[in-house]
Amino acid sequence: MSRRIVCLRHGQTLWNVERRFQGHSDIPLDETGIAQAARAASLLASLRPTLIVSSDLQRANDTALALGRLTRLDVHVDKDFRERGGGQWEGLTREEIAARWPKEYADWEAPDGETVQDVAERVGSAMRRWAAKLDDDGLLVVASHGAALRLGICDLLGLPEELWPALGGLGNCSWSVLQEGRKGWRLLEHNAGTLPEPISSDDKPDAEV
């Protein structure tokens, strides 16, 4: 065995349902999200994780704590796993954003928000930093956010930026699994844990299905 990372997106929030950009806004899980976190925890506990770390935002941290309770592992918090900052878009719906900033919406670049390049580097670097703490057969679970995880995975895999759109988004409480090999990290599973379903997150619209 070699080191692995499970990238777990947080459970559903009311803003997910309303298709509002969350970004750094600290929005809690709704009742469905709490149930999703419990279900994901029951499945991921069977993988016997050795280290759990989460974003400092409560929707991700509460998702991680559900797994921590089952595995009796502490949940470490790292703000580098936060969602992509949405600047002036936070709290607004897709329709509101498109109406007010049509050009920026087409490019999915929020005024005063983080760039995809900055988020990819931030999250990818954090994944490497925490993975370095694992034993050779250790399993790290990162509880984070849709856009942050997708971009961090692209960075960890060393994908050129023009190929980043090829990786689709993550559903609430779905996960991706990466494994370290002799030539670097590789993606074993993506958006696992549920049957395909609509995805609502802060990621680019074309990353959703």
Results as ranks from 00 to 15, higher is better:
Y105L: 03
S144T: 03
R84C: 13
A132F: 06
D74T: 11
S2Y: 04
R129S: 14
A126T: 06
P196H: 08
Q12L: 10
A99H: 08
L139A: 04
E114H: 08
P196T: 04
D74E: 13
P196Y: 01
A41V: 00
A110S: 10
G168V: 00
D26W: 08
I52D: 01
R186N: 07
E83C: 07
G158E: 09
E96I: 06
P198Y: 09
S201G: 11
R182N: 13
E180A: 12
D135K: 15
P205C: 07
E83L: 09
V53N: 07
G85S: 11
L167Y: 10
V75H: 04
N172S: 06
A166Y: 15
K79D: 08
V6I: 15
D135L: 13
L29H: 01
E180N: 12
H145Q: 13
V209Y: 02
P160L: 05
G11T: 02
R82T: 12
P198F: 12
Q179A: 14
T115W: 05
A166M: 15
D202R: 05
A35I: 00
G158Q: 11
W185S: 11
D118H: 12
P111E: 04
L44Q: 01
E121L: 10
G11P: 01
E162Y: 11
D206A: 14
I27K: 04
G23V: 05
I153N: 02
A35P: 04
W15N: 09
G169I: 01
R72F: 09
Q22F: 07
R19V: 02
G138E: 10
L70F: 01
G91H: 05
E18F: 05
Q88H: 12
G68V: 01
A110E: 02
S54W: 06
E161F: 08
W108Y: 06
D135V: 06
A40C: 03
H145M: 07
F21H: 13
I34W: 08
M127P: 09
R19P: 01
I52R: 03
V116F: 10
D62S: 13
R129Y: 07
G113P: 12
A132H: 10
R94T: 11
S25C: 11
L151Q: 12
S46G: 10
A40N: 00
H145E: 11
R59A: 02
V119K: 09
V119W: 06
A37E: 01
E83A: 07
T194V: 06
C154G: 05
G152W: 00
S176V: 04
A41H: 00
S2Q: 14
D26V: 09
E95D: 12
G91M: 02
D112C: 13
Q36S: 03
L163K: 14
V77R: 15
L159W: 15
R3F: 03
G87E: 03
L149P: 04
G86R: 08
A40E: 00
A207L: 10
V123N: 12
L14Q: 13
V177Y: 02
C154F: 05
A60V: 00
A66Y: 00
D118L: 14
L44C: 10
K103H: 02
Q88F: 09
S46E: 15
E90C: 13
A98P: 05
E83Q: 10
E90V: 15
R48E: 14
P160C: 08
A64Q: 02
V177Q: 06
R128L: 14
L151S: 07
T50F: 01
A207T: 01
H76N: 07
R19C: 02
